[in-house]
Structures are given as structure tokens and as C-alpha cells.
């Protein structure tokens, strides 16, 4: 079982996504680049400070690649065109999604994760998006070397500030 946020874990997520989408009847055509920004919130031990940033490319529904950016590394080094979708939220929410404690669609609809991009396309392929998110949430057995969520609450209120950013 891979550790959370390691290369092995992302490879496992990518494989799970591609198995999931292979069972869908309708897939979005074309290529889409997705950026994910997991922001430190003082609770998750996996995002110490700043943010972890990831890029993913989806082509005809399947995940082509998934990579983490180093601090200060430009997205443009990996993406020729624009970023089609951005997902931004506090680390604890992403950790809880990966641990299967939080439903990712609920997190987006309730504003815990901010989603930016073409909503029409996102809604048109809601079933595909659901499949992608289920792979992230349920399909990979994950180990948590620094502790598994849910984490103890803190009183700084930093999480809410990120969620509303």
C-alpha cells in the first residue's frame, strides 16, 4: 500500500482512475489540464507550509499523467496552453477526501474546495468527474505514515480562511 502523496500513490490513483473511466459509456473528448492546490492549514502533517501543487492531464477521459510541482516551479514548464480547471482547498479537506471521510462532490458544492473552470463542461461530464473523484477517494489503499485523518481540531481558524479564499 503506497504512502499518501508519494509517486507510488499517484501512480495507483492514476491507474484507478483509468480503470474507473474505462467502464463509462460517455467520456469527454479532448485534453484537459487540471491544477490542484492543497494549502497548508496547520492540521495536516502532510502539507507543512505553503501548498502542495499538482498537475494532471486528462485525455479523452483517461489520466495521462499526474505530477507534483516543486516549490516555486512554474506550471508553464509542464503545460503548453492554459489550465482548464483549478481545485483549491485546505490540506485537511483533501486528506479527508483521500481517506474516504469526506465526499469530494459535497466538498465542492459546499465550498470547502474551490473549483474554477468551465462549469458547463464539468456539469456535462458530471458522471465522469464523479468517477475520477471516486478513484481518488475509494480505489486506492493508502497508508498514512504521519497519522490518518480525522485530525485533532485546532483553534486558529486558519482552515476556514483557506476554504473561503
Amino acid at each position: 500500500m503506497p504512502d499518501i502523496y508519494t509517486t507510488e500513490w499517484y501512480d495507483a490513483v492514476r491507474s484507478a482512475i483509468n480503470v474507473g473511466v474505462s467502464q463509462l459509456r460517455s467520456l469527454p473528448e479532448g485534453r484537459f489540464v487540471v491544477a490542484v492546490e492543497i494549502v497548508a492549514d496547520g492540521r495536516s502533517p502532510y502539507v507543512g507550509e505553503g501548498a502542495r501543487r499538482f498537475l494532471m492531464e486528462i485525455a479523452d477521459g483517461s489520466c495521462l499523467w499526474y505530477r507534483e510541482l516543486q516549490p516555486g516551479e512554474s506550471e508553464k514548464a509542464h503545460v503548453e496552453g492554459r489550465i482548464d480547471y483549478r481545485f483549491l482547498g485546505p490540506a485537511t479537506v483533501f486528506d479527508e477526501i483521500a481517506a474516504g471521510l469526506v465526499d469530494p462532490v459535497d466538498a465542492a458544492l459546499r465550498g470547502a474546495i474551490t473549483v474554477r473552470g468551465d462549469m458547463r463542461l464539468l456539469l456535462r461530464h458530471a458522471e465522469h468527474v464523479k468517477s475520477l473523484l471516486e478513484a481518488y477517494t475509494n480505489a486506492v489503499s493508502t497508508t498514512w505514515p504521519l497519522g490518518r485523518p480525522p485530525y485533532a481540531a485546532v483553534t486558529s481558524g486558519s482552515e476556514g480562511a483557506v476554504a473561503r479564499a
Binding site: 466538498a107 465542492a108 458544492l109 459546499r110 465550498g111 474551490t114 462549469m119 458547463r120 473561503r164
Partner: peptide
């Protein structure tokens, strides 16, 4: 409001349409 994410999505859908 707790559904701010959904409100933003609907607003973006409306703007584009």
C-alpha cells in the same frame, strides 16, 4: 452560506449561458 460552492457553479453556468 454553506452552499457557496454550488452557488458559484450555478452563477458561472448562468454567466456563460
Amino acid at each position: 452560506g454553506e452552499a457557496a460552492g454550488m452557488a458559484s457553479m450555478v452563477a458561472e453556468l448562468l454567466r456563460a449561458n
